[in-house]
Computed example of a mutant assay.
Amino acid sequence: MQPESADPAAAPRRLVLATRNAGKVTELRAILSEAGLGLELVGADAYPEIPDVKETGTTFAENALLKAHALARATGLPAVADDSGLCVDVLGGAPGIFSARWSGRHGDDRANLDLLLAQISDIADGHRGAHFACAAALALPDGRERVVEGRLEGTLRHEPAGSGGFGYDPILQPLGETRTCAELSPEEKNAISHRGKAFRALAPVVRELLGS
């Protein structure tokens, strides 16, 4: 695919989010729009001809940068990507970068969640600490890059609760909360989430590098 625009003044007005997850696109668009960047934000589904990038990194930051650079090169536009997951204390930080495919089927939220709950079913409440981690990366077509990170600490419920969010949201209860992430409103979740923290930290970087 040829870059969308050869005009460096025009290209930065669109920022591509390297995800086809509709829930994540909506969430990230809301977070970045609140920063008043004045950019058009589109998901990777606007470019169906671009193949998904294999997440071969060993950290969230490496995977986020891989995806952002691949999309920036393919579109000729600035691209933002994130990689995030659930890190469980008693599992030594797993599922971690394998969160989306923990059950062996990528993106099968229910299978991933059920497997994780089975694996820690005999763990007492006092030892069910976990956190969501997110690395958010910005890559420009000229090769410049920046990455920031955010975390949401919490504990794991024994049973899912709530119908909002996605992934492991129904079982992570943030510290200081009585509800799971899936029981929070989108606004409440964005205010405290690992992804919200990471992308709010990335917003001034976008403004700095793109002059938006």
Rank of each mutant, 00 (worst) to 15 (best):
E159H: 15
L138H: 04
R110C: 00
G150Y: 07
R128N: 10
D82E: 15
E159W: 13
A100I: 08
E187R: 11
E187N: 00
A81R: 02
G93C: 15
E159S: 14
G176Q: 14
R151Y: 10
F98W: 12
G162C: 13
P186R: 09
Q173W: 06
A137T: 03
S185D: 09
R157L: 15
G164R: 04
A94L: 15
S193R: 10
L115I: 09
A135K: 04
A94G: 14
R101E: 08
D82Y: 07
S193P: 00
E188N: 06
E177I: 07
D122W: 05
A81H: 00
L175H: 14
E153R: 15
H194C: 04
A136N: 06
H158E: 13
D169L: 02
G154P: 04
D82S: 03
A137F: 04
H131G: 00
G107V: 06
G143R: 01
P170Q: 06
G150H: 07
D169W: 02
D108T: 08
G143Q: 02
G165K: 06
G150W: 11
R151L: 12
A136R: 02
V147R: 04
G150C: 06
D109G: 06
A137K: 02
N112P: 02
H194W: 10
K189F: 12
I123L: 08
D125T: 11
H106F: 15
R105A: 12
L138M: 12
A136K: 07
A118W: 01
P160Q: 13
G107H: 08
E159L: 15
E159R: 15
R144M: 03
L86F: 02
A137Y: 03
G176E: 09
L175A: 11
